[in-house]
Structure formats: C-alpha cells, structure tokens
C-alpha cells in the first residue's frame, strides 16, 4: 500500500493553545484510520487543515503526490478529498433526495440553468446512493425533519456522492443513540469498502474503533501520541490511562 495523504510537521496554534504541534502522519490507500483523543487534542483541527478550512502555520499536506497545503476547500474537494461534519451540514429546506442530488450536481457540474436538478439520471443515482445508506424511506423528507442518526448518515452520503478517494469524517457517531450506533457504522463501512474509499474518522467510541479501524492514531495536545493497529494501541496502558481512561473501563473489567 502507498500513502494517499502525507502530513509533515503540521503546526497550528490558537493563541497559546497548540492544536497541531508537528503532526506527521501517512494515511495509506484504502485503509480506515481512526483518530482518538480527548477534547481539544486537535483532531478536528487536523481534518480542518486537510480539507482547507484552516491553513496550517507550518508543515505540508500532500495528497496523491500533490501538495494541497492551504488550498481552498473547493479546490481540495475537486481533487478527491471530501469530508463530513460533527454537526451535519445539510441543506435544511431541501429534501434528502435533493441534498444528494445537489452533491451529485456539484460533482458533475452545477452551471446549467435549464435542466432540472432532479433530472432522471441524477435522481436515479441519488436514490441508489440513498438506498445503499438505508435512507430511501426518508428520501422525500425535508432534511430538518430527520433524527440525528439519519442526519449523520445523510451528511456522509452527500460526501460519498462526490465520489472521493479520501473521506474524512468528524465524529460520525456522536449524538447518535447507542441502539442505532453500530447499525449506522456497519452500513457506513460497507458502503465505503464497496466504493474503495480511504477513510479517516474521528471517534470517541472505542468499540467502534476496535471493530472497524485498520489503524488508530491517538491525538494528545496537538501531537500523535501513538499510532498502530487498534488491538495494540488500545492495549497500551498509557493510552488507556491518558486517553481512554474515563471513557472505557479497563480491559479486564469490561469482559468480567
């Protein structure tokens, strides 16, 4: 496998707070990389820098061999890097189907003022996409009428509609009811694996990380404290104490 995304020496501080303090990370093609760490460790900042929302104060980001450091979000998206958001960013006055169709239109070209958004080909593609995410039953509903779990999936479906090679997801399961969580992640992983999308996701649920990530990177105070397979990293006593401690009982207790 080769690296699809390479971050080298990324630095960004907000006042005195270092959100990125020399981040070096390779994201390998087709892998699922989980990012974990306490709030304020700089996880979202990494996604924001990679997708062009924030410009790093130092370091470089290379995607597929081309440097994308500090480029505008829409330039980065056009190269094949999409993202979803911690708070779903849906077009609230549009239906779920129209949201998906708008994403398809963004990919195919939005500038025709004469053909309708819901033209047969795009409508079919949108419905197929929503079907893969299990969202077809709510295709006709306005986005602001959905529950949080469904909004999360719709938000990610819009990113997938762009047909990215790399998808960055910021807490795809936060705010989702525990009962729905595993089902949503399973659906998501199946769709992304089928589409051969490389995924980076920020996650707080260690069960999700353990089950679905190929590798996990532990963020701490703007640095990567540990990086490796979940079984190895999550078993590290320092990681358990400093990062997971309050979120997950010690391994022995969990299975007692």
């Amino acid at each position: 496998m080769r690296a699809l995304l390479e971050a080298r020496g990324l630095r960004l501080a907000f006042g005195g707070v270092k959100a990125a303090d020399g981040i070096d990370l390779d994201v390998m093609e087709h892998e699922f990389l989980a990012i974990i760490g306490p709030n304020g460790a700089g996880k979202t900042t990494f996604i924001n820098m990679t997708t062009g929302y924030l410009k790093p104060q130092g370091g470089t980001i290379t995607y597929s061999g081309a440097e994308i450091t500090g480029r505008r979000p829409r330039d980065i998206v056009r190269r094949g890097v999409a993202r979803s958001f911690q708070l779903p960013q849906l077009f609230s006055e549009h239906t779920v189907e129209e949201n998906a169709a708008l994403a398809i239109a963004s990919r195919e070209g939005i500038w025709s003022p004469f053909a309708p958004l819901l033209r047969p080909a795009w409508r079919q593609e949108a419905r197929e996409l929503l079907d893969r995410f299990g969202l077809l039953p709510v295709a006709g509903q306005r986005a602001d009428a959905l529950n949080e779990g469904t909004r999360k999936l719709a938000d990610i479906a819009m990113a997938v509609a762009l047909k990215p090679r790399l998808l960055l997801m910021d807490e795809p399961t936060s705010g989702v009811a525990a009962a729905e969580k595993m089902g949503i992640v399973e659906t998501l992983v199946r769709v992304l694996r089928d589409a051969r999308v490389t995924a980076v996701f920020v996650e707080h649920d260690m069960d999700v990380v353990e089950r679905f990530a190929d590798r996990v990177a532990v963020w701490s105070q703007g640095r990567i404290a540990a990086l490796g397979p979940p079984a190895q990293v999550l078993a590290d006593p320092a990681v358990q104490r400093d990062v997971i401690g309050i979120e997950r009982p010690a391994a022995g207790v969990a299975h007692a």
Partner: peptide
Amino acid sequence: VYLASPLGQALSAIKTRETRLDFMGV
C-alpha cells in the same frame, strides 16, 4: 426553470448552508 435547476437550487443552499457548498466543490 432556473430555480428548479442545480444552479437555482444552489441559491437556496446558500441561504441554509453556504459552507457545505464550498465543501462540495462549488
């Protein structure tokens, strides 16, 4: 016709979630 087109629909999208448009490459 314009308002039913992707371009017209993107206008409404500006009102509700402009940032997302930029993250879709528009």
